[in-house]
């Protein structure tokens, strides 16, 4: 463009807006960058922001911390299980809402979305009350991974509505003639679902899975209320470690978690691009 003046929507050319962008980025990402940088700091206290030299010993320490590893393993198990269940339930709910007409459908759709707007603390308390009423709160006599059942159930209840809504949105753009074409060409109801509807839903399924996974992995409030002494998850463990003393070990563990999330997101996006 030969003109000097910025166009109407040409925001990137306005200096004031560039400045806002830079400050916004700093505000959002600087804490994370500091966290990562100081995971390599050779200092005894993690809260210390004075650079004392490069070391990887806190990574070794974190990977040597059996309690932390156990919590991490618990978190991954819970996240993977609840993601599968949420996406499955979300798909069923979304297809059901999309495909059928029935009385009180708007009310039903509203009820499904309710866990999204209910404060987490309320869900945590109500689930804790539910589990203790059922006598499920004491999980110490159950073998792994069944002792994580309570937390998995709790995570499904709050991530399934997100999955359902994401998939439902994707389904809105489906042309019903596609499914009819498959039926017309000889596919039965199930084959039409598998061959035409599922491929269409795929980006929604991936987005729903990513969303459920991250929601589960970093959930603290609901997990805190539904976990027992033998079922500590990663965020809960970090919290208890912070209360005890802040060391760069926590920075190191968090950095590993950030890295994992980034890799996972990258893989999901790459897969989505390959599929389309």
């Amino acid at each position: 463009m030969a003109t000097d003046k910025a166009g109407l929507f040409d925001y990137s050319r306005k200096w004031s807006l560039r400045l806002v962008f830079v400050f916004g980025a700093i505000f959002l990402y600087l804490p994370i960058i500091v966290l990562i940088v100081f995971s390599f700091n050779d200092s005894r206290r993690g809260g210390n922001v004075i650079w004392k030299g490069f070391t990887t010993k806190y990574y070794e320490k974190a990977f040597g911390n059996e309690e932390l590893l156990l919590a991490f393993g618990n978190s991954l198990t819970i996240a993977v299980t609840s993601t599968f269940a949420s996406v499955l339930l979300g798909t069923l709910a979304a297809v059901f809402l999309w495909r059928f007409r029935f009385p009180f459908k708007p009310a039903f759709e509203g009820f499904i979305a309710l866990p999204i707007v209910i404060p987490e603390i309320c869900m945590g308390v109500s689930l804790a009350m539910f589990f203790s009423q059922m006598g499920w709160m004491d999980t110490s006599n159950r073998i792994w991974p069944f002792n994580l059942g309570n937390i998995i159930i709790a995570h499904i209840t709050f991530s399934f509505p997100f999955a359902a809504m994401v998939i439902r949105t994707r389904l809105a753009s489906f042309n019903p003639e596609m499914a009819e074409a498959a039926r017309d060409l000889g596919a039965n109801e199930w084959q039409a679902f598998r061959d035409v509807l599922v491929p269409h839903m795929r980006p929604g399924l991936i987005a729903a899975a990513l969303l459920s996974f991250t929601l589960s992995l970093d959930d603290f409030v609901v997990t805190f209320f539904t976990s027992g002494p033998s079922t500590v998850t990663f965020p809960v463990k970090i919290y208890s470690m912070v209360r005890f003393s802040v060391t760069p070990e926590i920075n190191a563990a968090s950095t590993v978690l950030i890295l994992m999330t980034l890799v996972l997101t990258y893989l999901a996006l790459r897969y989505q691009r390959l599929a389309s």
Binding site: E177, E180, A182, R183, D184, N188, D195, V196, H200
Partner: peptide, 20 residues
């Protein structure tokens, strides 16, 4: 008979070609 068991085939108005 359901559509998949009729020896009849259709060209849809939107063509409904499977995009994937």
């Amino acid at each position: 008979l359901p559509p998949n068991r009729r020896p009849v085939n259709m060209v849809f108005q939107s063509y409904a070609v499977f995009p994937h």
